[in-house]
Design a protein around this nucleic acid. Structure first.
Lengths: 155, 155
DNA sequence: ATAATATTAGTCAACATTAGTCAAGAAAAC
DNA sequence: GTTTTCTTGACTAATGTTGACTAATATTAT
């Protein structure tokens, strides 16, 4: 406990608040100042310790009155399944393989038919079509993973 | 929560009125004075928070007896409505405007909350991120339009 | 009627105020 | 000793605020 680094301490501080309330809203500069670190360290802490896998969703706004808001979300019980699909998608995916992933989701009951169609529209070849096949596959992978991550929790 | 910027406060004030009546008519200088800001800030608030994508139409008149009128538009039946959104999206769209489009879809009853989240995940900045901002906006537009077009068939 | 003046709102660019990214170096873990 | 994680700061991006200038419309004077 005595050899905690400052990132761990900031993490604890935020999680202590989150233990009692559903969300915490901070001003980055204020927290950085409070713990005597540079502002970007707050981003580091959030990026490494408040991920969707950990059950947190983060929103922020810049400019006057800006903030970072961390919300604790209720994770569903399909996590391992989603994890496996995220792994399967990887950083590139073809339309064909993307279709298979969406089909898996449907067969597992994670999405309904309407939702399937929305997802397919999103990764359609006419939607994602930069002229660079490799880039298209990367974008398709990220879009799919982004959607998968949102299926991890209820909102 | 406590450090809201003044633009948000003015937005809330106007939307509170709009929650109870179809439209609100203001004198710019009066509102500016009431909230202690320069008049042009009212234009900023309107331009950023009461767009057609958000479902508002703004009319104004200068000179003596001038006014700014914000009207919450009646959502048309689905097909026309989706047409108008497709037009609004155009061939490129920012995340901010994309969010407004999706919000409109939701408010029109064209999609439910779960579907909103899937669509937002699909056009998220982490999902569509090639490093080329302009390209990102083009892809986001195509993804959104692809989804909008699929919603036509189903509804 | 027309011109001058007053009274509104609109535009735009400068500046202010926030958060985000990235890569280099330091520290810790292995 | 190498690899991973943490820390830092320079640079970037998004959003909000302000004020000088412009434009439109109404009112008043001639």
């Amino acid at each position: 406990m005595e050899n905690q680094n400052i990132s761990d301490i900031i993490e604890s501080y935020l999680k202590q608040i989150l233990a009692e309330s559903q969300q915490v809203e901070i001003r980055r500069a204020e927290i950085a100042d409070q713990f005597n670190v540079v502002p970007s360290q707050i981003n580091y802490v959030i990026k490494t310790r408040f991920t969707i896998q950990d059950g947190y969703v983060v929103q922020s706004k810049r400019g006057g009155g800006g903030y970072i808001r961390i919300e604790k979300v209720k994770l569903l019980d399909n996590l391992d399944f989603i994890d496996s699909l995220v792994t399967a998608v990887g950083d590139h995916i073809t339309r064909h393989d993307g279709l298979a992933v969406v089909r898996s989701l449907f067969e597992a009951g994670a999405v309904n038919r309407r939702e399937v169609n929305i997802i397919l529209a999103a990764i359609d070849k006419d939607a994602i079509n930069t002229g660079d096949r490799d880039l298209d596959q990367q974008i398709r992978a990220r879009v799919l993973i982004s959607i998968l991550n949102h299926l991890r929790y209820e909102s």
